[in-house]
Amino acid sequence: MDEKKAAILGEIPRLRRYARSLLRDRDSADDLVQDCLERALVRLDNWQTGESPRRWLFTIMHHLFIDQMRKVNRRGEAAMLPLEASEAQAAPAEQVESIASREIVDALQAISPDRRAALVMVAIEGFSYAEAANILGVPAGTLMSRIARGREELRALLDDTARRRSIRIVEK
């Protein structure tokens, strides 16, 4: 197996984690990874020797995600939103999640995709501001404000969840 392919294989777990944080649903996230890998293989020649495979692949995947997001916005595609997780009696749990973990995953899904991507890049994937800005194709200042807004929004949603949970307990 050639070196490039070996390097790509090694990045799949990280790509899956990033996709999962963008989309949450496991199959959808893996479909995004698959699209990313397919595109990467077609463009293998564009990959400069010496360039980090991680940065290259994340850039490809992010473009796929953002392109699709824009198309969906333009077309005015109808979409489904499941109700609150706690009330979604029928939703099968894909993995065992603690309540705290589920809450933060829910909150992450609720913030804008741009902010979500920026925050995840830095806070989970551990990219530097410079690397993340490069991958997302935005100036460093934009990246920083997305991270700051993203964190604020996430915290506000978590505070809100905690408040609603306490209201529900009082109701019973």
Binding site: R24, L83, A85, A91, V105, D106, T161
Partner: peptide
């Protein structure tokens, strides 16, 4: 966004 956003897996 938060109100209906508590997602329990996207049943797609």
């Amino acid at each position: 966004g938060g109100y209906l956003a508590g997602i329990g897996g996207l049943g797609l």
